[in-house]
C-alpha cells in the first residue's frame, strides 16, 4: 500500500555541519561576534547592571522629587513604602494573569501546532488560518474584543458562574499566546531532521507513535528558549490590561498617583513599576540565554 508523502519541508543537508537545524543560530552568533570585533566592545545584553541603573533612577528621582516638594511634605520613599502593598498586590495580578494565559495558550497552542502538521488538508488549513489570524492581530485589539464581548457571568440553569474582568483579560491575552505557541511547535517539529522520521518508520512505528515517542521529545528542548521568551513578552504585555480596567499594577499606579495628587511622584512610582518587572523578568531572560547557549553548537 502506497502512502501519501508527508507534509514536511525538504531538509537541505548540503551544509558544513551535520546539524542543519542549528545553522541559523550559528549564523547569527557569528554575525554578532563579527560586529563585536568590529566595534571592539561587547554589544549590550540585558544583565544585572540594568537593574542597578533602574534602582538608581528610582532613588535619584525620589531625591529630586523630595527636593522639589520641599520640607513640609512626606518623604517620597515613605510614600512609596506606604503604597507598596497596594502596588505589589497589583503586580501579583500581573503574574497570575501571565501564568494562566501562558498555561491556556500553551495547552491549546500545542494542539493547534500539531494540527498544522496534520495530513488532512482541512485540519491543516483551518489551524493555519486560526494561527495566522491570532498571530497577526494586535494584542490590545484581541483584549478589547474579549473584554466587551464576553459576558460578566454565565448562567447555566440556576447556577451563576461569575466571570470577572481579569479572567476575561487572561483569555484575551492567551489568544496571541496560543497562536505563537502553535508556530513554535510547528517550527520545532519541522526542524527535526527527516532521518528521524525515516528511521522510526523503518522500525514500524505509526505516525502517532513517531510524533509522540520520537519527534516531540526531541522538540521540547528546542521549544524551551522561544517559549520562555514568549512568556517574558507576555508578562510585560499584561500591563495592557490596565487600559481595559483590570486592577493590575499599572492601573494601581495610576490610582496611587491620583490619590496622592503630587506630580513629583510620577517618576518614582513608574520607576518602581519598572523595577518590579525587571526583577521578575531578568532571571527568566538569563535562564533563557543559558538554555539557548546549551542547545547551540559551539563556535
Amino acid at each position: 500500500m502506497s502512502r501519501r508523502p508527508r507534509n514536511r519541508p525538504p531538509v537541505d543537508l548540503a551544509g558544513t555541519t551535520d546539524l542543519p537545524v542549528l545553522l541559523p543560530a550559528a549564523d547569527s552568533l557569528a554575525r554578532r561576534a563579527a560586529r563585536e570585533r568590529e566595534l571592539g566592545a561587547a554589544l549590550p545584553r540585558l544583565d544585572w547592571r540594568h537593574g542597578l541603573v533602574l534602582l538608581a533612577v528610582l532613588l535619584v528621582s525620589a531625591g529630586v522629587a523630595q527636593a522639589q516638594a520641599g520640607a513640609g511634605r512626606e518623604p517620597v520613599l515613605e510614600v512609596l513604602l506606604r503604597w507598596m502593598p497596594v502596588l505589589l498586590r497589583g503586580f501579583l495580578f500581573n503574574i497570575v494573569i501571565s501564568f494562566l494565559a501562558m498555561a491556556v495558550g500553551t495547552l491549546i497552542g500545542t494542539w493547534l501546532g500539531l494540527m498544522q502538521i496534520s495530513l488532512l488538508p482541512p485540519v491543516r488549513v483551518g489551524s493555519w488560518f486560526v494561527t495566522q489570524f491570532f498571530r497577526n492581530a494586535p494584542w490590545l485589539v484581541l483584549l478589547f474584543y474579549c473584554m466587551f464581548l464576553l459576558p460578566f457571568e454565565f448562567r447555566i440553569g440556576g447556577l451563576v458562574i461569575p466571570f470577572p474582568d481579569w479572567i476575561k483579560a487572561t483569555i484575551g491575552l492567551s489568544l496571541p499566546v496560543l497562536a505563537n505557541v502553535s508556530e513554535i511547535v510547528r517550527g520545532a517539529v519541522n526542524s527535526i531532521p527527516s532521518g528521524q522520521w525515516e528511521a522510526s518508520e523503518s522500525l514500524a512505528f505509526n505516525r502517532r507513535q513517531i510524533l509522540w515517542m520520537i519527534i516531540l521529545p526531541q522538540c521540547v528542548k528546542r521549544m524551551l528558549p522561544p517559549w520562555m521568551n514568549l512568556y517574558a513578552i507576555l508578562t510585560m504585555a499584561t500591563v495592557l490590561a490596565s487600559i481595559v480596567g483590570v486592577s493590575e499594577m499599572m492601573t494601581q499606579a495610576g490610582r496611587v498617583l491620583a490619590a496622592e495628587d503630587r506630580p513629583d511622584l510620577l517618576i518614582p512610582i513608574y520607576s518602581f513599576v519598572l523595577l518590579c518587572f525587571f526583577v521578575y523578568c531578568y532571571p527568566i531572560a538569563r535562564w533563557t540565554v543559558a538554555l539557548e547557549r546549551r542547545f547551540q553548537v559551539k563556535l
Binding site: 488538508p121 482541512p122 483551518g126 488560518f129 464581548l149 464576553l150 459576558p151
Partner: peptide, 23 residues
C-alpha cells in the same frame, strides 16, 4: 471550504459569547 468552515466557526463562537450578555 476550510477557510469558510473556520470563519463560520469563529462567527458562531462570537454569537454564542454575546448571547448571555443581555442581562
Amino acid at each position: 471550504s476550510a477557510v469558510l468552515g473556520t470563519t463560520a466557526a469563529l462567527a458562531l463562537a462570537l454569537v454564542a459569547s454575546v448571547a448571555p450578555g443581555t442581562a
